[in-house]
Simulated assay, not measured.
Amino acid sequence: MTSKNWLISGVLVLLCGGVLVAFTDIEVRAVRWVSCGPLSTAQEDKSELCN
């Protein structure tokens, strides 16, 4: 591979990694909002996830 191909490959790996991190963060926040939000029970509010 040439250095240009390595650069493109590196950029693609970083981009894909960034997308995965972003979606994971969004998923964690969505689960926390559903579990600890206004419709949650008292037991769910006391759970480790909500603390």
Rank of each mutant, 00 (worst) to 15 (best):
T2F: 04
S3P: 03
S3M: 15
K4G: 02
K4W: 08
K4I: 11
K4A: 13
K4M: 09
N5A: 15
N5S: 12
N5G: 10
W6D: 14
L7S: 13
L7G: 10
L7P: 01
L7N: 09
L7Q: 11
I8H: 06
G10A: 08
G10F: 07
V11M: 14
V11H: 07
V11N: 04
L12W: 06
L12G: 05
L12M: 13
L12N: 02
V13E: 07
L14K: 05
L14D: 01
L15Q: 05
L15A: 15
L15M: 14
L15D: 01
C16P: 00
C16Y: 08
C16H: 05
G17N: 03
G17E: 03
G18T: 01
G18Y: 01
V19C: 09
V19T: 07
V19M: 12
V19K: 02
L20D: 05
V21D: 05
V21M: 09
V21P: 00
A22D: 02
A22T: 13
F23P: 00
F23A: 07
T24F: 07
T24K: 08
D25H: 03
D25R: 04
D25Q: 07
I26Y: 06
I26Q: 09
I26E: 03
I26W: 07
E27W: 06
E27P: 00
E27A: 13
E27M: 06
V28L: 05
V28K: 11
V28W: 03
R29V: 04
A30R: 15
A30G: 03
A30D: 10
V31N: 08
V31E: 11
R32F: 02
R32I: 05
R32K: 15
W33L: 14
W33C: 02
W33S: 15
V34N: 04
V34S: 06
S35G: 01
C36P: 03
C36E: 05
C36Q: 05
G37S: 10
P38I: 11
P38M: 10
L39Y: 12
L39K: 14
L39Q: 13
T41C: 02
A42T: 09
A42I: 04
Q43D: 14
Q43I: 06
Q43H: 10
Q43N: 12
E44P: 00
E44Y: 01
D45N: 14
D45F: 07
K46V: 06
S47G: 08
S47M: 05
S47A: 12
S47R: 04
S47T: 02
E48G: 06
L49K: 06
L49Q: 09
C50M: 11
C50W: 08
C50D: 10
